[in-house]
Simulated scan of single mutants.
Amino acid sequence: MNPTYHFGLLFLRVTFSAMMLTHGIPKLMNLVQGNLDFGDPLGIGSTVSLILTVIGEVICPLLLIIGFRVRLSAIPSIIVMGVAAFVVHGNDPLARKELALLYLFAFVAIALLGAGRYSVSRR
């Protein structure tokens, strides 16, 4: 397959995951510092919601950047962005939920397309 295609998959994985880290790392810092004040959109508890969000916004994007089990690693990020778009911002106008939707669509594309040649899993 065309090397440009594989570079495109790498570019998609790295750029969206790196941008997701800008949202997740502050949440990780709150978790590490014991600041567990976080929303509870699914009614499972704010601490559990924060931990799951950190997994979807930090741990899985890091796995996506290196290309480790990409299709599986994209699932938590898809779920977190789905909850952000349709539950947290469900009643908001499109402009407010647009960013979550963009991340959601990108992570769905990554899950469907896979890692490509330039990934740890491919080695």
Rank of each mutant, 00 (worst) to 15 (best):
L64C: 06
G90M: 10
I25C: 05
F107G: 05
V32S: 09
T47D: 13
K27E: 05
V32Q: 07
K27S: 02
L101A: 01
L94N: 04
L28T: 00
F11M: 15
L42D: 11
G114W: 12
F105A: 08
L102H: 02
L113F: 15
L64T: 01
H6N: 15
V87G: 02
R13Y: 14
I75K: 03
V88P: 06
R69V: 15
L9A: 07
C60Q: 02
M81G: 03
A115F: 09
V83N: 04
P93M: 13
L31Y: 09
D37M: 13
R69C: 14
M1F: 14
L62W: 05
L102D: 09
V108S: 02
S46N: 15
M20S: 02
P41S: 04
G82P: 09
H89A: 02
R123L: 06
G8Q: 15
L36M: 12
P76R: 03
S77C: 11
F38A: 04
A84G: 08
L36S: 06
L31W: 08
Y5E: 11
I66E: 13
P76V: 11
L102M: 07
E98N: 01
F68G: 01
G114I: 03
R69W: 15
S46V: 15
S121A: 03
L64F: 11
T4F: 14
R13H: 12
Y118D: 04
G67T: 08
